[in-house]
Design a protein around this nucleic acid. Structure first.
Lengths: 193, 193
DNA sequence: CATGAACTGTCAACTAAGTTGACATGGCCT
DNA sequence: AGGCCATGTCAACTTAGTTGACAGTTCATG
């Protein structure tokens, strides 16, 4: 059995404090973002000493990075024919609001910090660009997928970062039927048909 | 002559310190954002006392709001026929990068603070939505303009907030010719033609 | 079973940063 | 001349992230 030198968090005798801190941080960072959440607040919610938070995670920023992971369950996208991927992707995005919104905003607003910016870049790539590029082909597949990522990100930017009331009020249906086709244009340009 | 009760900044005996603080804050907030810029740093650059910065602007946040104004010279858009507005708008946007980038990012990343969020909302409305809505008509003009704002904001989000290297490398021409038509779709939908 | 290393935890304190209050000064208006 | 107020300085307060000293616990090994 190989032992990894201090890299992996060993279970040891878990009193569960580390997990409590992790959970508290996840909730607070999601709801309040990076800047407005204090280490002392996290510690209080986890019933721990502020110093212990740093002990466990080295710094507030590393704790943030350890808890804020943007994900998208793209399973519902796999079986969708390419011609419907545009609308479907917007649907999936809007339906996972509970999972994504807090993390997306926290990453976006925290991206002043270089490491958080890097995480935002990677998450954007993984969640918004990659699933679409995987379905494209041709020499310009990469650019098109990246523009699609910009388009998709723009919707979340407008809804969540800007908080456009009228768009929020528009409802899922209208957003899907109006914005989806635009995304579709990038996936299957008219010149392809 | 009416005197406004303490609202307008009276010239008085200007030693210019206030202006120096304003200028330093503008530069630093643009280049480093809200969180990474300290009041003490602004004061140092302006050759003033940190307390004086607060004296003049009441708080770091108000100083930020006083200096960070997102604008877009939409004059070059007025004469453009509606059918070319999509590409033209993207062009104008990309050409004003020097003016907009720092402020846009500072507002976006600072939008954890409620007042900065409100400024972002207003700026988005004024700069990205309003110029387009002004050219649209029909019952759905508002929604379409707002979706156009999302689309446009998405491009800046991808380029500047995410920092998508491949998009940055793509160059103005390609971005305009690929992303402009998508915007155009919202301004003049195919069903209109 | 003892023991030392590594982990878990506590407490006080340090540093940086935004802000405030006390106080000084100099110009402008009456 | 006198008073008001904008301008400016300085020290100090508060909050927040982080560190260091120290103590208790657990676990693998001799």
């Amino acid at each position: 059995m190989i032992t990894y030198p201090g890299v992996m968090p060993r279970p040891r005798s878990g009193s569960g404090t580390r997990e409590a801190i992790h959970a508290a941080a996840t909730r607070l960072f999601r709801e309040q973002g990076y800047a407005r959440t204090t280490v002392r607040e996290i510690a209080a919610e986890a019933g721990a000493d502020p110093a212990l938070v740093i002990r466990h995670f080295r710094s507030k920023e590393l704790l943030f990075l350890e808890t804020m992971h943007l994900t998208l369950d793209d399973e519902p996208l796999l079986a969708v024919p390419l011609e419907q991927l545009g609308e479907r992707f917007v649907e999936v995005l809007l339906d996972q609001e509970d999972l994504s919104r807090g993390v997306f905003l926290a990453l976006l607003r925290g991206s002043n910090e270089p490491q958080i910016a890097e995480r935002l870049r990677a998450s954007h790539e993984t969640v918004f660009v990659e699933p679409l590029r995987a379905r494209l082909s041709g020499p310009d597949a990469d650019v098109r997928a990246r523009l699609a990522g910009a388009l998709v990100g723009g919707l979340l930017y407008a809804l969540w970062a800007v908080g456009d009331e009228r768009l929020l009020a528009a409802g899922r249906e209208e957003l899907v039927s109006r914005y989806g086709p635009l995304l579709q244009q990038l996936l299957t340009p008219a010149s392809d048909r």
